[in-house]
């Protein structure tokens, strides 16, 4: 067990971790997208809109604030690739599907909640993101991102 063995381990260990993180992350992402698409198809007829002022012909019976929230974290592969990307700049493509999934998942949770409670639509939908600092407490690094979707659920007598 010489110095060279240690160097070899130092070289191969992150590489193995990278491959493992990629395979697992890609599998989870594929599965999640399948799930999102199926749920979106089922909720297609439920109106989710961003306007604040309702059309005059909407007869609103009751309202409620509804929200859906997701907390996501990065896998090692995405983090490493994004770190390399940070050196040269450009689209951080590995993060895009992650945030896309988070947005759609948050909206889906909100809509599912509204539908389960008998509402007909959600108006004034907003999306917000906040960064969760990690446990190191030095303010650097990110433990994850929270994606929050919220809006006003409406129960309509006529539309």
């Amino acid at each position: 067990m010489g110095l060279e063995t240690i160097q070899l381990v130092n070289f191969l260990l992150p590489l193995g971790l990278l491959v493992f993180a990629y395979l697992l992350g890609a599998w989870i992402e594929r599965r999640h997208y399948r799930d999102i698409l199926a749920r979106e198809a089922g909720l297609r007829s439920f109106p989710v809109v961003t306007f604040e002022t309702l059309p005059d012909n909407w007869q609103v019976e009751s309202v409620e604030l509804v929200s859906g929230s997701v907390v996501i974290s990065l896998d090692y592969f995405k983090r490493v690739i994004a770190g390399l990307r940070a050196l040269v700049g450009g689209r951080v493509k590995t993060y895009e599907p992650l945030l896309d999934r988070a947005r759609r998942e948050a909206v889906l949770r909100m809509v599912e909640h509204a539908q389960a409670n008998g509402y007909d639509a959600i108006a004034n939908v907003r999306l917000e993101t906040s960064r969760l600092a990690n446990s190191r407490g030095d303010g650097n690094g990110t433990a994850g991102i929270e994606m929050l979707a919220f809006g006003t659920a409406l129960s309509l007598s006529r539309r």
Partner: peptide, 25 residues
């Protein structure tokens, strides 16, 4: 209200992540 699913390919790049990784590395 016209029911439809969200459009794909707007916010997410369709480039394979391994391709980006290879180019960068």
């Amino acid at each position: 209200y016209v029911p439809r699913s969200p459009r794909e390919g707007i916010n997410v790049s369709d480039e394979h992540p391994l391709k980006e990784a290879a180019v960068l590395v």
